[in-house]
Design a protein around this nucleic acid. Structure first.
Length: 465
RNA sequence: GCCGCGUUCGUCUAGUGGCCUAGGACGCUGGGCUUUCAUCCCGGAAAUCACGGGUUCGACUCCCGUACGCGGUACCA
């Protein structure tokens, strides 16, 4: 046989059930990196088969998150592709066809799940573990999937052997064995005609020629069902890898209650997408030279699936902040100004360009997030009225007197006046900061006052006279 | 409960039998620079490698067990 070249095709399969989750981006990053390392295709398939949890806009929001991170896909509902449609709700006929095939081959069977009980009340099967048909009074089962679809009182389940076990290879964890006894006869087709995840994912991964499945560890337990389906269909199983899931500080699965899971939160807090990606890459993977800071491209070049660690990492916002600060400091002034304006539109109205430029120079080493710029520069645009102690008012007055006499308005001149004041009144710099800015610390004072100009500086002191 | 996955400083991690009296990073902390706060530079504390048994001349590294954590056990993904 001729040496067959692998076509690398990897996917993420998010469900549009809410805001964009940082865990989705984590998965997207690793899938994206591996496809790009191998000149493959990165696919986004929308798994919207749970009609009850569907959230309008959620799909669009997922894509805008991917765009923000620069993790563009090659095939998706919005981009189209050779294997369209990429939205599972639009592929129902396909699932029905394969469900029918399973039925005909004897690998699936119908189970009775009446919508209402005999009094006409709506039945709720959520959480029920047993087969309903095992103890219900049952009308004759449908003959085909098509018939099942008519009544809506039936579901299709997969068969599972009673005896024996099944072994699956995971590229990160090795071989995993499951007893068939432990595998439930999973519902494949719900009574509303939509497939469950398990049918959908297997059919689509095969049809879309997915070469590597790289997903979170919560899927490990459904592995036997999936592999069984591959066998029933006679399809080749892709390479499978399960990464660890991100955790809260208490080690539970990363959740809204304890951590920050919404991508929008990171955006609103002024984190840079590049920094977040860099941080995410460090979770479960490490740079061969133990570098902490590297570009997406460098990650793509060095990354390999086999180097992923199976241990679930705690998401540490602290380290992300540091990394974000590093990215801010690495930027050119022009880049940083651009990011700042993009982040906060009001900057354009509040500062004239030269003023803004000068403040950014002073602020760059003092920010960990873009949001912090507002804190640092606030006193340039907003009025403030600190409640000064009597003693400090006196200082302010003396400051006014001395600074009015400064002829060359330079930081050196201003500083030397300040030095004198500090000496006379035996106080420290924070006192002067408070007088001028309302805060005991901040951007370098003399430089700030130079930017502010002599007139405005004196005007500030005037209110203490 | 049952099944599966995991377990190196507080956190992210390096480590694939001797280089480890365990290295780096964040955070914490002492100092230098600077009469603010940061940045930057130098230093420190911090893991008996979850625990107990093996295997081996030798184990953080291999095997077994226990404990603990997490996940699954849905007409959710």
């Amino acid at each position: 046989m001729i040496n067959q070249q692998t076509n690398y095709r990897l996917r993420i399969a998010p469900s549009p059930t809410g805001y964009p989750h940082i865990g989705t981006i984590y998965q997207a990053l690793f899938n994206y990196a591996y496809t790009h390392k191998n000149n493959g295709k990165f696919i986004v398939r929308i798994e919207d088969t749970d009609r009850t949890r569907l959230v309008e806009d959620a799909e669009q929001v997922i894509f805008s998150a991917l765009d923000w991170f620069g993790l563009q896909e090659d095939e998706s509902p919005r981009k189209g592709g050779q294997f369209a449609p990429y939205r599972q709700s639009e592929r129902l006929a396909i699932y029905h066809k394969f469900a029918q095939e399973l039925l005909e081959k004897g690998y699936a069977f119908f189970d009775y799940y009446p919508k209402t009980d005999n009094t006409g009340k709506k039945k709720d099967y959520s959480g029920s573990k047993q087969l309903v048909s095992a103890y219900s009074q049952i009308p004759p089962a449908p003959k085909s999937v098509e018939e099942m679809l008519q009544s809506q009182d039936w579901v299709l389940r997969m068969k599972v052997p009673d005896e024996g076990s099944i072994s699956v290879h995971d590229g990160i964890r090795g071989d995993i064995t499951f007893e068939y006894k432990q595998v439930s006869k999973q519902i494949l087709l719900k009574s509303d005609g939509y497939p469950t995840y398990h049918l959908g994912v297997v059919v689509d991964d095969h049809l879309m020629q997915i070469s590597h499945i790289l997903r979170a560890e919560e899927w490990i337990s459904s592995l036997p069902k999936h592999v069984l389906l591959y066998k029933y269909f006679g399809w080749e199983i892709p390479e499978i890898y399960h990464t660890a899931t991100l955790r809260n500080p208490d080690k539970s699965k990363l959740s809204k209650r304890q951590g920050h899971t919404n991508v929008n939160w990171f955006r609103e807090e002024g984190f840079l997408p590049e920094a977040i990606l860099n941080y995410l890459a460090l979770l479960g993977w490490s740079h061969p030279e133990e570098k902490e800071i590297f570009t997406l491209q460098e990650f793509i070049d060095k990354f390999d699936l086999k180097d992923i660690r199976p241990v679930a990492p705690i998401f540490d916002v602290q380290k992300l902040k540091w990394l974000n600060g590093e990215y801010i400091r690495q930027m050119s002034l022009e880049e940083l100004e651009g990011e700042l304006v993009k982040f906060d539109k009001s900057i354009k109205d509040n500062f004239d360009p030269t003023l803004f430029h000068q403040i950014v120079i002073l602020a760059q080493s003092r920010m960990e997030t873009l949001k912090e710029f507002a804190l640092l520069s606030g006193h340039f645009v907003q009025t403030f009225s600190p409640n000064l102690q009597i003693q400090y008012k006196e200082i302010a007055q003396e400051l006014y007197r001395m600074l009015s006499e400064v002829d060359i308005w330079s930081s050196e001149q201003i500083m030397s006046s300040m030095r004198e004041i500090l000496h006379i009144y035996k106080v420290k710099m924070p006192v002067l900061y408070t007088i001028f800015t309302g805060q005991p610390k901040g951007l370098p004072l003399p430089e700030s006052l130079v930017i502010l100009g002599k007139d405005k500086t004196l005007a500030r002191l005037q209110k203490y006279l």
